[in-house]
């Protein structure tokens, strides 16, 4: 018997499908770097150097194969008084953060995300372990969500 965690009553907002492109490009770069790391083996003339390179690239490819599912598993819901965030398939994680607990909101854009018109949104509380980062939101949505969350936090302000 096994029970998969779920909060079935919630209608999850998922991240933009375009975020998958960003992840794939990132993984392609990772594959190149990993392959590059095996160059010294070739230079030393090790017999199995090609195997090492292939294994490294294969590991990245296997990880990439699960990426679409991994991204589909990321979701968030704005409930009346708190934000619920989920991620992970093998290692599932759900976090509920009351709006009043917000200390600040970060909206980050790397060059790749900016080219795709996406942003990462980070919800920071007084506890470091809260660690809620919603990746791959369309830029305008991230800005709206940020302003919305700040307004909600303002109306529910509490001490630490």
């Amino acid at each position: 018997m096994s029970t998969r965690l779920d909060l079935p009553t919630l209608a999850w907002h998922r991240v933009s499908p375009k975020y998958l492109t960003a992840e794939f490009i990132g993984l392609a770069v990772t594959a190149l770097v990993v392959a590059g790391a095996t160059i010294p083996l070739h230079l030393f003339g090790w017999d199995y150097a090609w195997w090492a390179t292939a294994a490294a690239v294969l590991a990245v490819l296997v990880y990439a194969a699960f990426t679409p599912r991994r991204i589909r598993a990321i979701g968030y819901v704005l409930r009346d008084d708190d934000l619920v965030f989920r991620k992970g398939i093998l290692f599932q994680r759900f976090v509920a953060v009351p709006y009043g607990r917000m200390q600040l909101i970060d909206v980050n854009r790397g060059p790749l995300l900016r080219a795709l018109g996406l942003s990462d949104l980070k919800f920071v509380t007084a506890a470091a372990s809260t660690n809620v980062i919603i990746p791959g939101l369309p830029q305008h949505e991230a800005d709206e969500l940020r302003d919305h969350l700040v307004a909600l936090a303002e109306s529910r302000r509490a001490g630490l």
Partner: peptide, 19 residues
């Protein structure tokens, strides 16, 4: 309760097999 910043729930593969 008033000092809780957030709450998380998590499950790894081994825990899932055992519910």
């Amino acid at each position: 309760h008033p000092r809780l910043q957030s709450i998380a729930l998590s499950q790894g593969p081994l825990q899932r097999r055992l519910s």
